[in-house]
Design a protein around this nucleic acid. Structure first.
Length: 195
DNA sequence: GTAATGATCTCT
DNA sequence: GAGATCATTACC
């Protein structure tokens, strides 16, 4: 493979994001997750697109209608994974934000593959595709991202990028709110912004 | 217990 | 533009 994006060095475990990173407003966590590295097993990828889903005041959020067995983790301590099955076939990965007791999570919409078990990049330009590429399923519901098996890290090299903001994709409620964040010009972003 | 729905993706 | 496919939810 000649793709320079592949086979980069594995990030240092010491750069793992601390709990304090997640104990903030959901919008801030969504924006700051851009450029971070997500790891699962030997797979590794850089986050290039996110969406904020605000707790109980956001009609588009699963947590809008209160705590249920599924949304329980969204109200729990930050830095945990909220995974759900959509359309009977795709898993979506969310990162829980806000202090314990306050709902809020960030949907990971696209990642830039940096390494995987086969040494080949799998499609990761969409929320359902990236979970498949990283091997994330419902069994990862509620896992602590400061412990594993899924972990988040600061990138080994700090590349500058510009942040784009747009309305969220694929929702009907609160569809106009500018809660989607992406790295401008990155080719793995799922869609270009609407105008 | 039954029925509607969906933060998607792939193919036509 | 339509179909795939099933966990979760709301309602009986």
């Amino acid at each position: 493979m000649s793709d320079p994006l592949l086979n980069r060095p594995v990030v240092d475990a010491a750069a793992r994001l601390p709990r304090s990173f997640y104990v903030r407003r959901t919008v801030d966590v969504a924006r700051d997750l851009l450029g971070k590295v997500i790891r699962h097993g030997s797979a590794s990828a850089k986050i290039v697109e996110t969406e904020a889903y605000l707790g109980t005041d956001d009609a588009a959020a699963h947590s809008a209608r209160g705590m249920t067995p599924r949304t329980r983790v969204i109200f729990g301590p930050p830095g945990h994974a909220y995974v759900y099955l959509i359309y009977g076939m795709h898993y979506c990965l969310n990162i829980v934000a806000e202090p314990e007791g306050v709902a809020g999570c960030v949907l990971i919409r696209a990642v830039e593959p940096t390494r995987d078990m086969a040494g080949t990049a799998l499609p990761s330009d969409g929320p359902g595709k990236l979970t498949r590429a990283l091997g994330i399923t419902l069994k990862h519901y509620g896992v602590d991202l400061t412990r594993g098996p899924i972990t988040l890290h600061d990138p080994p090299d700090r590349e500058a990028f510009k942040i784009g903001i747009s309305p969220r994709i694929g929702i009907s409620q609160a569809a106009e709110l500018p809660l989607r964040f992406y790295i401008r010009g990155n080719r793995f972003v799922s869609r270009e912004p609407r105008r």
